[in-house]
Every structure is written in structure tokens, then in C-alpha cells.
Design a protein around this nucleic acid. Structure first.
Lengths: 152, 152
DNA sequence: AGATATTGCTTGCTTTGTTAATCAAATTTA
DNA sequence: TAAATTTGATTAACAAAGCAAGCAATATCT
């Protein structure tokens, strides 16, 4: 048995651990966003779905899931409630009847419009504090990171 | 009522949205880590708790929660099972009996030691593919980001 | 001191994450 | 064409996240 006081070969400082650093950074960025969404009818995930639909137009669920970083089972449930709330609608793809095409509806667009200004203000504030170049640089690095194919 | 087809003032493209980019990047990085932890007695969250305790020593739950990016309710439940498994122990703070001080135990240190080498290998592999300078640069940018004090 | 507010943690409840199983429609193979 | 495989989506089951409420110990105020 080992001794709790023994000096252990330390891993990287947690600030320098990429997974933890990514998580902490995300908390910082999402804090204000979560507050913004707190008194709105959508949470973080639904907001992402609306954003993806706004950006990419009507599309199937696989596509939404990938872009919004949601698994299909989660998305199924989320879309069910969003459909009940009239934020989106679903229709069967006539070309391929396995697919259902999801489209954003008026109520969904309303939310994006109501909160869009606040969301933009948050980004502006953040870029100002953080620095525009650093901000872009960070996005570039993150984009590159996503392209990596790490061993499975 | 608004029209679903109306052109909307778009927010940033979602691949240039920092919260989403952080999320996607984290997915990429965590894939191999999750696999490494799959056949170990701890999951991702417990691993983070162990890392924080290793780095910061015995500390109260608020402190752990902040550093490991966990909410207190989640941490309460996680620590309960970790305590049952003998990975950590809790004792009441004699100065302030509301607080409980959490300490890592031998079994917890064992896990860190057993998996530490694998974890380090994953980092090495990733740095090689991504590039060392970029890797450090990214960590610097993320560390700066964590220091930001965004408006509440 | 006594009342009030704050802090640290826990519990309850709902939503989401995660994996595996299922099903129907489409595609590939034989 | 029939059988086998793949694909898109849903369901089921359980762990974990997230939020609100609650409780006990401490700090603050009057």
C-alpha cells in the first residue's frame, strides 16, 4: 500500500492540462451566456440548436447534432420539447423517409432576435477585455485542434 | 408575429463561436482520455477531483468544485462514492464546522500513479500531432481567458 | 445578546449525457 | 430479386448536470 504523503510524479499543473483548461475557459465564457438565457424559454443546448438552424437552415438531425455537439438521443428529446413549444417544426424528408428535416419557426427566430443583441454585446465585451487578436488567434487554434485525428 | 423566412441579423458563425469551439475542441481532446479511463475505477470527473487534490492538497469542497469545474451538488455525490471506495477521506474542519476538508487517500494516489504514464503519453502524442509551440500558445491563451472577469 | 444575513454543504427534482438495443427505410451484396 | 448490411432516428435505462430549496454553522448588525 502506498503512503498518502509520498511525493508523487506530478502530471501537468491543472492550469496546463488541456482538457481542464478547456473546461475552465468554457465556464468563464458561458457564465454570462447562461445568465442571459436564464430568464428565457431556452437553455444552453436549445440555444445552440437554434443557432445552428439559423446558420445552416433546415437540416436533418445528424447534421444538427454534430454542429451543436449533442448526441442524437439528447437531440431527440430536446427537439420534442422545442417542437411542442413551437420553436421548430419537423417534416419527413421525401427523398429519404428515414430522415426528418428540422426547420426553425417564428417563435424560435423571435428568441434569437430578442437575445441576439445581448449575446452580441457579451461577445463585444469579451473581445474588448481579452483583445481582438488574441481572440481570433484562440479561435484559429481551436479550429485546428478540432481537425486532429487522435488515436483511438 | 415574425416570418420564418425573414433574413435575421446573424450572430457569429457557429464555428467561430467561442463556447461551441471550446466544446468541440474538448470533445476531440477528451476522446482518448475517456478511453484511458474506461477500464479504470474512476470516470472523467473523479479523475479531475483526484488531480485537483493532488495538486492543491487537502481542501474544502468549494475549492475543489471551482478547480474541477463541478457544481457542489454533483461534487457531493461524487465524493460520497469516492469516499466509499477509499479514494478520498473527509473530515470536519475544526475551525469552521460547516466545512469538510477532503484529502486524497492511498487508493486515490495509486490510481493517479497507475494512469499517470498513460495520460502523459496521450499528451505527448497530441503535442506531436498538433505542434509544440501551438500547444503552449493555446494553453497560454486559455490561461489568460480564465483570468477574465466578465460582467455578471 | 438576539435577530438577520451569509456561507458550506446536502437533498429533491427535472433535464441532459451516455451506452446499448430497437426499428424502419435505404443501400449493398450475393 | 432476396438476403444482409448500413443508416437515421427513437426508446430505454442509468449516471451526471443543473437549478431550487433546505439545513445547520458562522458572521454581521442593532
Amino acid at each position: 500500500m502506498s503512503d498518502p504523503e509520498r511525493p508523487n510524479p506530478p502530471l501537468r499543473r491543472t492550469n496546463r492540462s488541456l482538457p481542464i483548461a478547456l473546461l475552465r475557459a468554457r465556464e468563464v465564457v458561458m457564465g454570462p451566456v447562461r445568465e442571459m438565457l436564464a430568464d428565457s424559454p431556452v437553455n444552453e443546448q436549445k440555444w445552440r440548436v437554434l443557432r445552428v438552424l439559423q446558420e445552416g437552415g433546415a437540416q436533418d438531425q445528424n447534421s444538427i447534432a454534430q454542429q451543436a455537439c449533442l448526441l442524437l438521443p439528447s437531440l431527440t428529446r430536446i427537439l420534442r420539447t422545442m417542437e411542442n413549444d413551437g420553436l421548430v417544426s419537423r417534416r419527413e424528408d421525401p427523398q429519404d423517409r428515414r430522415r426528418s428535416i428540422v426547420q426553425i419557426e417564428a417563435a424560435g427566430l423571435d428568441i434569437l432576435e430578442q437575445r441576439g443583441a445581448q449575446a452580441a454585446a457579451l461577445v463585444t465585451d469579451m473581445r474588448a477585455q481579452y483583445g481582438d487578436e488574441k481572440f481570433e488567434q484562440l479561435l484559429d487554434l481551436l479550429e485546428d485542434l478540432q481537425k486532429l485525428n487522435l488515436k483511438r
